[in-house]
Structure formats: C-alpha cells, structure tokens
Design a protein around this nucleic acid. Structure first.
Lengths: 192, 192, 192, 192
DNA sequence: AATGAATGAGGATTCATTCAT
DNA sequence: GATGAATGAATCCTCATTCAT
C-alpha cells in the first residue's frame, strides 16, 4: 500500500496505521511507533517532520492508493451501469482487503488532525468527481431520476462504508450475494 | 440533551462534547474541561470516575437521546412506509439539530476508547433493532425484496450519515426536497 | 534575596540560580531543578510558564534586589562624593555577599535568553540612572571634568565588576584597603 | 582571525562564533554548524573531538589573536604612559573591530564550559602579565600610587569591557574623543 | 461537597555523536 | 578524507489523577 515510499517510511507508515487502528491516535506514541517499527525516533524524525506529518502522509497514501483501485477500468466506453458497479465493487473489495486503511480514512477524514489542504487534495484527486460525473450522465440518459449527483454519490458511499464496517465487526457478512444485492439496490434506488 | 443528569454532570458533558468536536479528544484535557465548564477538577472527579468515564457517559447520553427521538411515533399501526420514513426523518432532523452529538457518535462509535459494553448496550437499547424488524415486516409483506434486514438498515443508515456529514461541512444542502428524495429512493432501493 | 515570592517560587529560583552558576544554563535541566528543589516539575510549571520564565524572573528578582541595596542611603543631601562612594561600596558589598546573583547578572545581561523588555525594565528601575545624575551634578559643580555621565558610570561599573570577579575567583583579594583604594581612584579618575 | 587553522577548521570556528553570538550556545547545534559552514558533521568530527572542543578552540584562538594585537608595539623603550595607552587602545580597537570575538570572550571567560586549563593557558600567554609588569614599573617610578598591579589591570580592563559593551549595544558612542578621555582618566586614576 | 495545588509518568522532539558507505 | 543517515538518551513540557484544606 505504501510502495512509493522508501523502506524506512514504509515501515513507519505501516506501523503507525496498525497502531492507530489497534489503540487509537492518542495512545499511539512516537516511542511506540519507534519500538514496533524497529526505527529509532531520531530516524523517524529524519524522514517525517512531526507526528502530524506522519498521520497526514498516511492519509494521503491511503487515499491515493484507494483512488487508483476504485478507478481501475473506469474510463472505458462500457455502459454506465457496468462502470458504476465496477467502481463501487472495487471500493468494497479494497476496503475489505485493507480494513485498516479503510477504518483510518473513516475515522480521520473529519478530524482536525488532518490538514485541510490534504483533505482538499485528496478529494480533488480522488474518485468522487469521476463518479459524480457518471451519475450526471445517467440522469441525462434518463436512466436516473433527476437529483444532485453529489448527493447520490454520498448516499451510496455511505451505504458501502456502513455495510463494510458492519462486516468488519462481524455484525453481518458481506459475501458475493450481498455485494450483488447491494449493487442492485443502488441501481434501483435512483432508476426511473 | 443531558436532562437526566444533574447540573454539574450536565455542564461537564456539554463542555466536553463541545471541546471534543472543536479540538479533538487528545487536545481536550481535564483542566480545559474544568476551566470551560466552571467546575473544578476535584468536583469533576467526584461525579465521574475518569476521563474515559466522561466520554463513555457522553456516548451513552447521546445514543439514548437519539434513540428516543428516532423512535418517536414509531410504535403505531400506521403503514410500514410511513413509520419507516418517519424514523429516518427523525434521525436526519436530530442529526442536523445537534450536529456535535451526531459528529461525536460518528467519530467514536468505532473507537477503542468507548467500552464494548457501552457500545453493546447502546445497540441493544437503540433504534436499530426496531427498525430491522420493520424491514423484516416489509419483506414478509412482499413490499421489499428478500434481504438481510441488518444489511438494509446499515445501508440506509450509512446514506443518512454521509449526506448529513456532507451537509454539515457545507459540501451539499439538505433541504426539504432533498430529504424527500432521499426517503423516496430508500423505498425504491428495496421495493419489489 | 527572593523574599517577595512564595515558598515554592523561592525554592525554585534559589535552586535554579545555584545550578546555573554551578553548571551553566544549558546543563540546568528542569528535572534537575525539580530534583534539587524538591518541587515536582508539575508544580514548577504551575508557578512558572516555562524555563525561560524562571530565568527571566531570576533576572528581575536579582536586579530589583540589587537596586534596593545600591541605592540605600543614596537620596540624601550629603556631599556628592559621600553618596557616590556609598553607592559603589553598596554594590561591591552586595556582589561579594551574593556572588551567585552577581555572576548570573554578569553572564546573562547580554544573553538573548533574557527578554528585551525585562532588560529594559531592569535598566529603568535600576540604579544606573540615579548614578548618572550624580555624575552630572559633579560635572556641573566643577568637581569632575566634563564627560558623558553614561560613559563614566559604565567605566566605574566595569571596574567593580572585574575586580569583584577576580576576587571571587581568588585571583586577587578585595579587602577593606582595596575597596578604599578603588573608590579613591574612582574619584581621582575624573576629578579636576 | 583563525588564520593559523586549516580551511575546514577555519570555516567551522567562524560559523560557530557567528552562531553563538547570534543565537546563544544552547541553540547552536552541530547540525546547524554543519549546515551553515557547508561542512558535514562527519568532517567536523574529523577535525574536532567534540562540540566542547570547538568552543574551547574558539576561545583559545580569539584570546591568542587578541594577545598579539594588544601587545603590538608594546615591548619598546618608549615611556610607560605611551606603551600603556597604546596597549589599551589596541584592546579597544580590536574589540570594536571584532565584536563577536569580544562578546564571546566576555560571555564565556567565566563559564564552566571552557576548560580550566584553557583559561589558565590563555591567561599565561595573554597580555595580562606584561601589562601588570608595566603598572608595577609605573609604581616603582613613582608615577602611580602603590597598589596591587593585578587590581589596577582588572579595574582598567573592566572599564574598557563595559564601555565597549555599551558602545556595541548603541547605549553610548565610543568615538576618538571618548577613547582619549577614557585613556586620560586611566592615567589620572592612579597617578600621584 | 468543592477546590485547585501537587504529583510524576509519559508525551513529542532534539541533538551530540557514530559509522557504513 | 568526506558524507549524512542512524541512534537513543535527554530535553522541555503536559495532563490525568489525588488529596489536604
């Protein structure tokens, strides 16, 4: 997930992510990150300006990775429904495959700890805008009822987040059939 | 929101909630709570066992309050659709009216800082189970396609959370029409 | 020397002064001050904003104390020479009696660690200006050759500082005779 | 000022001196010296044993340089007054010309950071002893009142230090006339 | 019940020094 | 000789909690 970073940075980011999910940000001290990652605090500070910088880099790294995955096979000339469902399915699969990254983004996307510029950049380079455009296309093609595309994307995104969360905490099971049913209801929820 | 607590407890809980939303948990120190609420630390510790206890009480208080609001007018013999939409609308309205409480629950419902027993109790006494039952009824009445009710509730709950969040951060506007459209699409998403 | 402070502040200031003279500012850590003074770091921070604040308070305290001593019996209508020599003698005696305070002021009066406003206040409320006025009077009374009074005060002050320093490091002895000779040469250095 | 050292050592010493005057010893880190001098920390440690060693070498270098300047034209058979005033004037001029060196010696001559052996060597090889001898000669020639020569040298040295300091901080101006007046009062202060 | 001074372990961060390249 | 990444002890400071008043 952090392949574009060097060895030390990768170790720090991975360790920090695991610790934050396991223990929460406030309980994730630099000395703990150092001990667990096997990198001395001094070295960590050689590669990252501060604890805040690590967290923000973590955020950027995960969002950027997710963006790539979600938009895989998105810019084709296949039917709208195919492309839409593929994107959401990609999101579901990457969220289930990298639960820590998923949980981190969920918990911290509204936190003041993440700099606004980082959030802004994440949003602009993310999958949100392309998806909104496809909802718009669907409306124009009379496939969907007219509605604010941003609203539609947030609704479906929220549905995925909450079912994935529930799945990760074993409150329900997200098998192939469930994913199919979810995507199906997505289409139905707005279709004319 | 914290009417069942005494004056001191209420002041502490309200101050803590405001501070956590404003500054984040880790930046919300007991001395800051004391200064802002006008209650001395000694007194705070007279009414709460620890900082964790305050946070958990906060969680319980908000969830319990939300539960009451959401289930207002729920246990009637009106049609399923009416009751369902009323419940979700109640949730939307209370979330928009008490944004701090809403945000707090969102941020901390998956945090290790909230004791599992508190989360469990919140779930059991909350609005989740009654709603699940109504979805089940709708399936049995052939109004909805067969599906795991838990799954359906999480999907719709997620949609509300994410549109409310977006509305609170001024990313989109949640006016009457939008709420109508959202509830309408909820029904359509599962209806036969 | 720090009688106007409370017990904790006094202990902290005295300990800090002793440590700085003994080991130098950079080697005087807060934990060392805490250990030696018997006050916990937490308490120290209850009474002082920061390490810098302690050092600056120390500076203020000593300068203020010295000012009182030097100007003891200064504002009388005795002859100029009497008043001048009494002031300088007071300075010599207080410097020899409180060598740590003397050394501290010497070492840190030009340090960026002491805030400019503190230095400014120290200067304005100190003994410098009154002494400069007396040198001016002496010039006007044709007792002294005309010269910039500030210059004269600095010259004599420097002489005292360096002989006291030498005395404190046992390089020479500052007995009664030496003090007499020094004051005598002060008068001669400028007298017509 | 550090011409007897090699290029690397010179760069390190000059940078360190500038930094210490600008920011104080404790804020002058090795990495800052490295960055500013363009010499890597590794190289610095190749030429100097430690940070302390740099500071002490700095002290030695400046004292030695000052000694040469002060005693320029000192060992002649000109009259005592000429030689004495020339030496002090040399000291004043070198202090005003190299204010950083002057300030450094002032701040650190009584600091535990400078090894006693370095101070001792500086004293023995410095201008102090030759000057003391001339004061002694002046006493024997009945030009000066009898007094401990060490005492006399410290008195005049202190006067210079404090007027130069005041001049460097723009508290007063040390022009030719002021220097003349100062040297004149030096002679008068002890002359019979 | 109420206060807030006192505690000290633990936080993020720095920095002199080393050493593999 | 030269480099600068790596180290980790030590720095200043915070903060949840206690307890004498």
């Amino acid at each position: 997930m952090f392949d574009k970073y060097n060895k030390v940075q990768k170790a720090v980011l991975e360790t920090t992510l695991a610790l934050i999910i396991e223990k929460e940000l406030q309980a994730t001290s630099m000395s703990l990150i150092a001990k667990r990652s096997g990198i001395s605090t001094g070295s960590i500070y050689h590669y990252f300006e501060s604890k805040e910088a690590i967290i923000n880099e973590l955020y950027k790294g995960i969002v950027s990775f997710n963006g790539l995955v979600v938009l895989e096979g998105f810019f084709t000339d296949e039917p709208i429904r195919t492309r839409l469902e593929r994107a959401w399915e990609n999101l579901i699969r990457v969220s289930l495959k990298y639960p820590q990254g998923f949980q981190f983004i969920e918990q911290y996307s509204f936190s003041p700890y993440i700099y606004d510029e980082v959030k802004q950049a994440a949003y602009e380079e993310g999958w949100c805008t392309p998806l909104e455009k496809v909802y718009q296309e669907a409306i124009e093609a009379k496939l969907f009822r007219p509605m604010e595309p941003k609203f539609m994307v947030q609704m479906h995104y929220g549905s995925i987040v909450y079912t994935v969360k529930a799945s990760l905490s074993h409150y329900l099971t997200m098998d192939e059939a469930a994913i199919r049913a979810l995507l199906d209801s997505f289409w139905k929820s707005f279709s004319i």
